[in-house]
């Protein structure tokens, strides 16, 4: 088995990296909201799931792909991929903003007890997932193939498959874009200010509701992108994928230190790789358990993650 692992190591690594980037993008959704509101947005996993469906809708209904269609190539392919990506991102971004308005805003402005937003979030997550379950009749929904998954070449014995390469490159671009956004734009700076000190930010004239909506929008956009990459890689989805991916991405966010954008990056990559290697040895049925164990171990021994702020320290 070990020899086998050495043979496959490079290929597993490439697969793990592309999975890792999917986690990075979803983790950004969790981490940005956490940074601003100090709250886990439970329903982010469902935002992701809706992103995967948005991709399929674009592929099937806008570009009229069917299971028999020829995969696209060349510029047409690039055009289609971009269109799907933007479709997923918009769907998820808008849903995310809507979610905040419906499920959290009232509670936040009322300053209710701490359990209330959490329970509201869980409820919202159930509503979204169940709505999709009823819509899809509990079935898996496959995506027609939009491109041929060509092997572009070999790299230290790893097959560089086109979809994996696209995900890694596009994921990297999105991540850098987000970092720039947070560093350079006015909204980004306001988001950072609120993350560091809400009261001070408010005193400086930051409109909190606007910043919160902006955060949910940006987090949703990233999560939606992950939805598209997921479809590109696995070519099917269902109403209940949000749960598993959501927990994994949340674990990634914790691993890197929640509330910390760079942390989401390292945590996502690390978890994607770890999960892929572990599945090789243990079998995929224990994948979720592996992820949970990582979560428990990190929360127990390094609750701050690798870079993040303390979550157990409190002020009295």
């Amino acid at each position: 088995m070990l020899a086998n692992f050495q043979n496959q190591f490079a290929s597993l690594t490439v697969g793990g990296l592309s999975l890792g980037f999917i986690y990075v993008l979803i983790a950004l959704g969790y981490t940005m909201v956490y940074g601003v509101l100090r709250m886990i947005n439970f329903a982010n996993s469902e935002i992701f799931m809706y992103g995967t469906f948005a991709s399929i809708v674009v592929i099937r209904d806008v570009f009229k792909f069917t299971q028999q269609s020829e995969p696209a190539t060349g510029f047409r392919l690039i055009y289609i991929l971009l269109f799907c990506l933007i479709g997923s991102m918009l769907m998820a971004g808008i849903l995310s903003v809507f979610l905040e308005l419906v499920a959290y805003r009232r509670l936040r402005n009322k300053g209710s007890n701490k359990l209330a937003p959490l329970i509201s979030a869980i409820g919202m997550s159930i509503v979204l997932a169940e709505f999709m379950r009823i819509l899809t009749d509990s079935r898996y929904v496959g995506s027609p193939r939009v491109m041929e998954k060509k092997v572009l070449g070999n790299f230290f014995g790893a097959e560089l498959r086109l979809d994996n390469v696209i995900i890694v490159v596009a994921g990297l671009v999105l991540f850098i874009g987000l970092s720039q956004f947070v560093d350079k734009t006015r909204l980004g700076k306001a988001i950072r200010a609120v993350s560091m000190n809400e009261d001070a930010a408010k005193l400086m004239g930051v409109n909190l509701n606007f910043v919160v909506s902006g955060t949910f929008l940006v987090g949703g956009l990233m999560t939606g992108a992950a939805g598209f990459f997921y479809i590109l890689k696995y070519e099917n989805t269902s109403f209940n994928i949000g749960f598993e991916l959501g927990i994994a991405a949340f674990t990634a966010a914790i691993l890197g230190g929640i509330g910390n954008i760079k942390g989401a990056f390292y945590g996502g990559i690390a978890l994607g790789l770890l999960e892929t290697y572990a599945s090789f040895f243990l079998g995929t049925q224990w994948k979720a358990v592996t992820v949970f164990l990582v979560l428990v171990v990190v929360l127990y021994f390094r609750p701050n993650g690798v870079f993040g702020e303390a979550i157990t320290q409190t002020r009295a």
């Binding site: 709250m39 886990i40 701490k114 359990l115 959490l118 869980i122 927990i247 949340f250 049925q285 224990w286 979720a288 358990v289 949970f292 979560l295 428990v296 929360l299 127990y300 609750p303 979550i311 157990t312």
Partner: peptide, 27 residues
Amino acid sequence: PALRLRGDYLAIITLGFGEIVRITALN
């Protein structure tokens, strides 16, 4: 281990525990 954590984290950890028990029974 779980009760050393607060609020949100407790919720996630317990959620994970419930799933671990189910997946273990399944496998």
